[in-house]
């Protein structure tokens, strides 16, 4: 069996590579594990931040709820004459009932809907 110059070169290259790959692999595993651990710490830090942000959100929402309580909203128009008496609460305005007419929802197809159906039929 004859050895060529080329195969000798490959053997010469592979031997140190094989020797180097073991510590490199070990180092890689260690590095990967430490990176995962580092990421876990970072995630926990973020979780802490999220928890503290959630705490603040809860406090602010509670404050908003307190401020939005109907009992806290002033009744500016109440007592300014019975005709114009209005109860303002929760962001809603209730008009004087004497002037209110309640209308039932229109029965049957609405104008736009009817024309649309007609167009489809054509």
């Amino acid at each position: 069996m004859r050895r060529t110059r080329k195969s000798g070169f490959i053997t010469w290259l592979l031997k140190p590579l094989c020797i180097a790959i073991i510590p490199l692999g070990l180092f890689g595993i260690v590095w990967l594990r430490s990176s995962v651990t580092k990421a876990s710490y970072a995630i926990h830090d973020l979780e802490e931040k999220r928890t503290s942000a959630l705490k603040e959100t809860k406090t602010l929402l509670a404050e908003r709820s307190k401020l939005m309580a109907i009992s806290n909203i002033s009744l500016p128009s109440e007592g300014q004459g019975s005709q114009e008496k209005r109860l303002v609460s929760g962001g809603y305005v209730f008009p004087d009932r004497v002037k209110v007419v309640h209308m039932n929802r229109t029965k049957g197809p609405e104008a736009y809907k009817a024309s649309y159906q007609k167009e489809k039929a054509d």
């Binding site: 004497v98 209110v100 007419v101 209308m103």
Partner: peptide, 12 residues
């Protein structure tokens, strides 16, 4: 009883 005048319409 709905009043006949001063109507303010509120849809439901």
């Amino acid at each position: 009883q709905m009043p006949a005048k001063n109507l303010q319409l509120v849809s439901r």
